[in-house]
Simulated assay, not measured.
Amino acid sequence: MTPYQIVLGQVDDRAAAALMLDGRLHDLLIDAPGDRPRIGAIYRAVCDRPIKGQGGMFLRLGDGLTGWHRNAKGLQPGQELLVQVTGHAERGKAIPVTDRILFKSRYCIVTPGAAGINVARSLKDEEERDRLLEIAHDVLPEDRGSMGVILRTAAEGQAEEDLEADLSDTWEMASQVMSDTGTGAEHLLDGPDAHRLSWRDWPDAPVSETWDEVLDQIEALRTAEVKSGPATFYIEPTRAMVAVDVNTPEGGSAGGFKANLALARELPRQLRLRGLGGQIVLDLAPMPKKDRRGFEAALRTALRDDPIETSLIGWTPLGHFEMTRRRERIPTEELL
């Protein structure tokens, strides 16, 4: 029996989804207001102006929106191209986009510009890999041009008819978008909402629509204080960074190390649920320098299954620990 449960609901008429693990909030998705594009949205963009020294280009996306392409080598002002939204931007800032477009569904990813049919490396069973490849070759057209497909790990063991439908629908959608012949800046395809994302990316689990069951746990995300084992820590976002302060009632270096380990185990979950990213600075409880390696190992282990790219930078002269996290979500406090 799966320990997961998915709860679907709404926040101010916007789609929302909560992933529960043994009754505890594990992940949270809430749609942004309607004037902010979802990650995965596709636009026909028009190059506007390059930024010298940075290698990037501002793009016109239509609907009054501006995009930022960080790798604009070879692009010229006035040139049109298809781009996909890769993250959220603060109000008044350009939306990050890429021209490496992917069409992602539950069981497959269609990859324009990367031909071939492949299976996710994490799927090791050779017999199952062969089964999935055979299904894909039967469903997809022989002339696939420059588009390819990656069969995701979630495809393992799934019924043939479900895989065929997912492959066929995703391929057709990708073909229609990539054959676009229009001109000018225009929104071509919306990104998935919270309900579809929960189906696409979360584990198979029973689905409930009793949103009231998770409201108390969501409300707890609005306070800076978090209690975890022997530690109490405070997560406080500022304009420049996210500051995390660790406190412990236990004295001595052993108590400090235990509190810091508790933080390491809980921090990825808290950052994910709160939608926080960017620069993160940890003001840890006092502990000997010899325990730093153990803390880093615990933090890396906790981040291993986290879906958001996070880099551990290291220690400052003041003994703080720094990390950076990709800004893939709008802060939950703002969405609430």
Rank of each mutant, 00 (worst) to 15 (best):
A72P: 10
L65P: 06
A72S: 12
C108Q: 10
Q76P: 00
V11G: 02
R106F: 05
T86I: 08
I51V: 15
V11P: 00
H26D: 15
L19I: 08
R38D: 02
L81N: 04
A114N: 14
G67D: 04
G23L: 11
I39F: 01
G116R: 06
D31G: 10
N118V: 09
S105R: 13
V110W: 04
R24A: 15
F103Q: 05
P37W: 03
V85R: 06
P37T: 01
V46P: 09
F103G: 08
W68R: 13
V110S: 01
I42C: 11
T98V: 03
A18G: 05
M20Y: 03
D12V: 09
G62T: 01
P37H: 10
R49P: 01
R14N: 02
D13G: 01
L28S: 10
R36A: 10
G23R: 07
Q76A: 14
A32P: 04
I51K: 08
A114V: 15
G23M: 06
W68Q: 13
K73G: 11
L82I: 10
G92F: 01
G34Y: 01
Q84T: 10
I95L: 14
G116Q: 11
I39E: 09
F58A: 11
K104I: 15
L59R: 09
M20I: 12
G116D: 06
D31Y: 12
G53I: 04
C47H: 08
A89Y: 06
L102E: 14
L65K: 15
L102Y: 00
L59S: 04
G92H: 05
A120H: 10
L59W: 01
H26K: 15
I51P: 00
A114L: 09
Q79S: 12
A115C: 10
A114R: 15
D31E: 13
R38A: 14
G53C: 08
H26Q: 15
D13Y: 00
R14Y: 11
G56I: 01
I39M: 11
G113Q: 07
I30M: 13
C108A: 15
L29G: 02
P96I: 10
P96W: 08
V97S: 09
D48N: 14
A41I: 01
Q84I: 04
Y43T: 04
N118Y: 13
A89T: 07
T111E: 02
L75K: 14
P50M: 07
L102G: 00
I42R: 09
P33H: 12
A32N: 13
I95M: 06
P77H: 08
P77R: 07
D35R: 14
P37C: 03
Q84Y: 03
R60T: 13
H69C: 04
G40L: 13
D99R: 13
I109P: 03
